[in-house]
Structure formats: C-alpha cells, structure tokens
Lab assay of single mutants.
Amino acid sequence: VVSQCEHCRQEKLLHEKLRFSGVEKSFCSEGCVLLYKQDF
C-alpha cells in the first residue's frame, strides 16, 4: 500500500499507521515515526 508519509510528505510504501489525537497518520519508516513523535 502506497500512502503519503506524515513526516517526510513523500508517497512511499506504508510502514505503519498510528493514531494521534484520534486521527490516523501514515508513516513510511520507523525513523519518520520517531521524528514525528518528537515534533508532536
């Protein structure tokens, strides 16, 4: 499944979907998940 990563904003293969404040977010890698959590 290809989707837009919430952190790097590129269309890539889906690595993980997480829920932040009740909204589902898509990420392409574990690195982007960690960076997004730092900024959140």
Score class of each variant (00 low, 15 high):
Leu14Glu: 00
Gly31Glu: 15
Gln4Leu: 15
Lys25Pro: 13
Arg9Ser: 13
Phe27Gly: 10
Arg9Pro: 02
Asp39Trp: 05
Lys12Trp: 01
Gln38Gly: 06
Arg19Lys: 14
Phe27Asn: 07
Cys28His: 05
His15Thr: 14
Glu24Arg: 01
Val2Trp: 10
Leu35Ser: 13
Val2Asn: 14
Cys28Trp: 00
Cys32Met: 03
Ser26Cys: 07
Gln38Ser: 11
Glu24Val: 05
Cys32Val: 02
His15Pro: 11
Ser26His: 13
Phe40Cys: 11
His15Gly: 08
Leu35His: 06
Phe27His: 11
Glu6Cys: 13
Gln10Glu: 06
Ser29Glu: 05
Glu6Ser: 14
Glu24Thr: 06
Ser21Lys: 08
His15Glu: 04
Ser29Lys: 06
Glu6Asp: 12
Phe27Lys: 04
Val33Trp: 07
Ser3Gln: 05
Leu35Ile: 04
Cys32Asp: 00
His15Tyr: 12
His7Gly: 10
Val23Ala: 08
His15Ser: 13
Lys12Gln: 12
Ser26Leu: 11
Leu34Pro: 07
Gln10Thr: 06
Phe40Met: 13
Phe40Trp: 08
Leu35Tyr: 05
Asp39Lys: 15
Leu35Ala: 15
Val1Arg: 10
Val33Gly: 07
Val33Ala: 12
Arg9Tyr: 02
Glu11Ala: 04
Val23Leu: 09
Glu6Val: 12
Leu13Ala: 05
Cys8Leu: 02
Arg9Glu: 05
Glu24Pro: 07
Gly31Gln: 14
Leu14His: 03
Glu30Arg: 01
Cys32Trp: 03
Leu18Pro: 13
Glu16Gln: 08
Val1Ala: 07
His15Cys: 09
Phe27Ser: 06
Glu11Lys: 06
Glu6Met: 02
Ser29Cys: 11
His7Glu: 04
Lys12Asn: 07
Arg9Phe: 05
Cys5Pro: 00
Lys25Gly: 01
Cys8Tyr: 11
Glu24Gln: 05
His15Ala: 06
Val33Asn: 06
Glu16Leu: 11
Val2Gln: 07
Val1Lys: 14
Gln10Met: 12
Lys17Leu: 10
Arg19Leu: 12
Val33Glu: 09
Gln38His: 15
His15Trp: 05
Lys25Val: 05
Leu14Met: 10
Asp39Ile: 11
Phe27Leu: 00
Lys25Gln: 01
Leu18Trp: 07
Ser21Phe: 03
Glu11Trp: 14
Phe27Glu: 02
Glu30Gly: 08
Leu13Ser: 08
Cys32Tyr: 12
Lys12Ala: 06
Arg9Met: 04
Ser29Val: 03
Glu24Met: 05
Ser3Trp: 00
Glu11Asp: 12
Glu16Met: 07
Val33Leu: 13
Lys37Ser: 03
Lys12Leu: 03
Asp39Pro: 11
Cys28Thr: 01
Glu6Lys: 12
Gln10Ser: 05
Val2Met: 14
Val2Lys: 14
